[in-house]
Protein backbone atom coordinates (compact mmCIF):
# COMPACT_ATOMS: atom_id res chain seq x y z
CA UNK A 1 0.00 0.00 0.00
CA UNK A 2 2.99 2.24 -0.35
CA UNK A 3 2.20 3.22 -3.89
CA UNK A 4 2.14 6.89 -4.77
CA UNK A 5 -0.88 8.49 -6.38
CA UNK A 6 0.76 8.61 -9.78
CA UNK A 7 1.57 4.92 -9.52
CA UNK A 8 -2.07 4.19 -8.78
CA UNK A 9 -2.96 6.06 -11.95
CA UNK A 10 -0.34 4.47 -14.19
CA UNK A 11 -1.05 0.90 -13.18
CA UNK A 12 -4.42 1.08 -14.91
CA UNK A 13 -2.75 1.85 -18.21
CA UNK A 14 -0.55 -1.22 -18.40
CA UNK A 15 -0.14 -3.49 -15.37
CA UNK A 16 -3.85 -3.74 -14.66
CA UNK A 17 -5.44 -2.58 -17.93
CA UNK A 18 -8.89 -4.08 -17.49
CA UNK A 19 -9.81 -6.17 -20.54
CA UNK A 20 -6.29 -7.31 -21.38
CA UNK A 21 -4.61 -7.90 -18.02
CA UNK A 22 -7.46 -8.35 -15.57
CA UNK A 23 -9.67 -9.82 -18.32
CA UNK A 24 -12.64 -8.07 -16.73
CA UNK A 25 -15.48 -6.13 -18.32
CA UNK A 26 -15.47 -8.31 -21.40
CA UNK A 27 -19.15 -7.99 -22.20
CA UNK A 28 -19.03 -4.35 -23.32
CA UNK A 29 -15.49 -4.81 -24.61
CA UNK A 30 -16.66 -7.47 -27.03
CA UNK A 31 -20.10 -6.19 -27.86
CA UNK A 32 -19.72 -2.51 -28.66
CA UNK A 33 -16.28 -2.35 -30.22
CA UNK A 34 -17.53 -2.54 -33.78
CA UNK A 35 -16.15 0.93 -34.47
CA UNK A 36 -13.46 2.96 -32.77
CA UNK A 37 -15.93 5.70 -31.88
CA UNK A 38 -18.27 3.29 -30.11
CA UNK A 39 -15.39 1.76 -28.20
CA UNK A 40 -14.06 5.12 -27.04
CA UNK A 41 -17.58 6.34 -26.19
CA UNK A 42 -18.25 3.27 -24.10
CA UNK A 43 -14.85 3.64 -22.44
CA UNK A 44 -15.48 7.27 -21.54
CA UNK A 45 -18.93 6.50 -20.16
CA UNK A 46 -17.44 3.76 -18.01
CA UNK A 47 -14.62 6.05 -16.90
CA UNK A 48 -17.10 8.66 -15.74
CA UNK A 49 -19.04 6.10 -13.73
CA UNK A 50 -15.83 4.59 -12.35
CA UNK A 51 -14.35 7.89 -11.18
CA UNK A 52 -17.59 9.12 -9.61
CA UNK A 53 -18.39 5.86 -7.88
CA UNK A 54 -14.81 5.46 -6.62
CA UNK A 55 -14.96 8.97 -5.21
CA UNK A 56 -18.26 8.42 -3.45
CA UNK A 57 -17.48 4.94 -2.19
CA UNK A 58 -14.17 6.17 -0.83
CA UNK A 59 -15.83 9.13 0.89
CA UNK A 60 -18.44 6.88 2.46
CA UNK A 61 -16.18 3.95 3.25
CA UNK A 62 -16.42 4.50 7.00
CA UNK A 63 -20.19 4.96 7.01
CA UNK A 64 -21.22 2.03 4.85
CA UNK A 65 -21.85 -1.05 7.02
CA UNK A 66 -19.81 -3.94 5.67
CA UNK A 67 -22.78 -6.31 5.52
CA UNK A 68 -24.66 -4.21 3.01
CA UNK A 69 -21.67 -2.73 1.22
CA UNK A 70 -22.40 -4.39 -2.13
CA UNK A 71 -25.96 -3.05 -2.10
CA UNK A 72 -24.63 0.43 -1.33
CA UNK A 73 -22.04 0.20 -4.10
CA UNK A 74 -24.68 -0.89 -6.59
CA UNK A 75 -26.95 2.04 -5.65
CA UNK A 76 -24.07 4.48 -6.09
CA UNK A 77 -22.97 2.94 -9.38
CA UNK A 78 -26.52 2.68 -10.73
CA UNK A 79 -27.12 6.34 -9.95
CA UNK A 80 -24.12 7.45 -11.97
CA UNK A 81 -24.98 5.07 -14.79
CA UNK A 82 -28.42 6.63 -15.14
CA UNK A 83 -26.84 10.08 -15.01
CA UNK A 84 -24.58 9.03 -17.89
CA UNK A 85 -27.48 7.54 -19.79
CA UNK A 86 -29.67 10.64 -19.50
CA UNK A 87 -26.88 13.04 -20.37
CA UNK A 88 -25.82 10.94 -23.34
CA UNK A 89 -29.40 10.68 -24.54
CA UNK A 90 -29.78 14.44 -24.30
CA UNK A 91 -26.52 15.48 -25.92
CA UNK A 92 -25.05 12.55 -27.89
CA UNK A 93 -28.09 10.77 -29.22
CA UNK A 94 -26.47 8.80 -32.05
CA UNK A 95 -23.83 7.39 -29.71
CA UNK A 96 -26.61 6.55 -27.26
CA UNK A 97 -28.41 4.65 -30.02
CA UNK A 98 -25.28 2.76 -31.02
CA UNK A 99 -24.37 1.72 -27.49
CA UNK A 100 -27.98 0.90 -26.65
CA UNK A 101 -28.46 -1.59 -23.87
CA UNK A 102 -24.77 -1.58 -22.95
CA UNK A 103 -25.02 1.79 -21.20
CA UNK A 104 -27.47 0.56 -18.53
CA UNK A 105 -25.38 -2.60 -18.31
CA UNK A 106 -22.41 -0.61 -16.96
CA UNK A 107 -24.16 -1.13 -13.61
CA UNK A 108 -23.11 -4.75 -13.63
CA UNK A 109 -19.73 -4.16 -15.23
CA UNK A 110 -17.38 -6.01 -12.93
CA UNK A 111 -14.59 -3.50 -13.51
CA UNK A 112 -16.65 -0.80 -11.80
CA UNK A 113 -17.90 -2.93 -8.92
CA UNK A 114 -14.48 -4.55 -8.63
CA UNK A 115 -12.70 -1.22 -8.16
CA UNK A 116 -15.26 -0.12 -5.56
CA UNK A 117 -14.90 -3.32 -3.60
CA UNK A 118 -11.19 -3.95 -4.00
CA UNK A 119 -9.84 -0.44 -3.95
CA UNK A 120 -12.08 2.51 -3.15
CA UNK A 121 -13.63 0.94 -0.05
CA UNK A 122 -10.16 0.48 1.47
CA UNK A 123 -8.35 3.62 0.36
CA UNK A 124 -8.66 7.34 0.87
CA UNK A 125 -10.12 9.73 -1.67
CA UNK A 126 -7.11 10.81 -3.74
CA UNK A 127 -5.70 7.36 -4.49
CA UNK A 128 -9.24 6.17 -5.27
CA UNK A 129 -9.71 8.97 -7.77
CA UNK A 130 -6.36 8.21 -9.37
CA UNK A 131 -7.23 4.53 -9.49
CA UNK A 132 -10.60 5.25 -11.11
CA UNK A 133 -9.10 7.54 -13.72
CA UNK A 134 -6.26 5.17 -14.51
CA UNK A 135 -8.39 2.07 -14.85
CA UNK A 136 -11.03 4.03 -16.76
CA UNK A 137 -8.51 5.47 -19.17
CA UNK A 138 -6.97 2.04 -19.63
CA UNK A 139 -10.40 0.62 -20.37
CA UNK A 140 -11.04 3.43 -22.88
CA UNK A 141 -7.71 2.87 -24.63
CA UNK A 142 -8.29 -0.88 -24.75
CA UNK A 143 -11.81 -0.53 -26.16
CA UNK A 144 -10.71 2.13 -28.64
CA UNK A 145 -7.86 -0.07 -29.82
CA UNK A 146 -10.07 -3.13 -30.11
CA UNK A 147 -12.68 -1.08 -31.97
CA UNK A 148 -10.06 0.40 -34.30
CA UNK A 149 -8.61 -3.01 -35.20
CA UNK A 150 -12.01 -4.58 -35.80
CA UNK A 151 -13.31 -1.63 -37.78
CA UNK A 152 -10.17 -1.34 -39.88
CA UNK A 153 -10.17 -4.98 -40.92
CA UNK A 154 -13.90 -5.55 -40.91
CA UNK A 155 -15.00 -2.39 -42.67
CA UNK A 156 -11.88 -0.68 -43.98
CA UNK A 157 -12.65 2.51 -42.07
CA UNK A 158 -11.69 4.31 -38.88
CA UNK A 159 -14.35 6.38 -37.16
CA UNK A 160 -12.97 9.16 -35.02
CA UNK A 161 -15.79 11.64 -35.37
CA UNK A 162 -16.66 10.91 -38.95
CA UNK A 163 -15.87 7.78 -40.87
CA UNK A 164 -12.51 7.86 -42.63
CA UNK A 165 -11.86 5.44 -45.49
CA UNK A 166 -8.45 3.94 -44.93
CA UNK A 167 -8.04 1.28 -47.56
CA UNK A 168 -9.87 2.86 -50.46
CA UNK A 169 -12.77 1.49 -52.51
CA UNK A 170 -11.06 -1.65 -53.81
CA UNK A 171 -10.68 -3.04 -50.28
CA UNK A 172 -12.80 -6.13 -49.70
CA UNK A 173 -13.90 -5.92 -46.04
CA UNK A 174 -13.35 -8.97 -43.86
CA UNK A 175 -16.79 -8.70 -42.27
CA UNK A 176 -16.13 -11.51 -39.85
CA UNK A 177 -14.16 -9.07 -37.70
CA UNK A 178 -17.12 -6.79 -36.96
CA UNK A 179 -19.36 -9.77 -36.22
CA UNK A 180 -19.38 -11.10 -32.64
CA UNK A 181 -16.90 -13.96 -33.23
CA UNK A 182 -14.45 -11.43 -34.63
CA UNK A 183 -14.47 -9.72 -31.25
CA UNK A 184 -13.15 -12.85 -29.60
CA UNK A 185 -10.47 -13.29 -32.22
CA UNK A 186 -9.37 -9.67 -31.95
CA UNK A 187 -9.32 -9.85 -28.15
CA UNK A 188 -7.37 -13.11 -28.25
CA UNK A 189 -4.76 -11.64 -30.55
CA UNK A 190 -4.46 -8.55 -28.34
CA UNK A 191 -3.97 -10.69 -25.25
CA UNK A 192 -1.37 -12.68 -27.12
CA UNK A 193 0.55 -9.55 -28.14
CA UNK A 194 0.31 -8.18 -24.58
CA UNK A 195 1.73 -11.41 -23.21
CA UNK A 196 4.60 -11.48 -25.68
CA UNK A 197 5.54 -7.89 -24.82
CA UNK A 198 5.05 -8.39 -21.11
CA UNK A 199 7.05 -11.63 -20.93
CA UNK A 200 10.24 -11.34 -18.98
Amino acid sequence: MAKSISQEFVKGLWDEIPPFRLVLGLCPALAVTTTMKNGVGMGLATTFVLVCSNLLVSLMRNIIPSKVRIACFIIIIATFVIVTELVMQAYAYTLFQNLGIFIPLIVVNCVVLGRSEAFASKNSVLPSLADGMGIGLGFTIALGLLGAVRELIGNGTITVINEIQVFGPSFEPFEFMVAPPGAFVALGLMLCIMNIIGKK
Partner: peptide
Amino acid sequence: VLTVLSAASGGLL
Protein backbone atom coordinates in the same frame (compact mmCIF):
# COMPACT_ATOMS: atom_id res chain seq x y z
CA VAL B 1 -27.65 4.04 5.46
CA LEU B 2 -29.44 2.18 2.68
CA THR B 3 -32.57 4.30 2.99
CA VAL B 4 -30.72 7.59 2.99
CA LEU B 5 -28.55 6.52 0.07
CA SER B 6 -31.50 5.35 -2.02
CA ALA B 7 -33.49 8.47 -1.23
CA ALA B 8 -30.61 10.77 -2.17
CA SER B 9 -30.02 8.86 -5.38
CA GLY B 10 -33.70 8.90 -6.25
CA GLY B 11 -33.94 12.62 -5.66
CA LEU B 12 -30.89 13.37 -7.75
CA LEU B 13 -32.12 11.26 -10.64
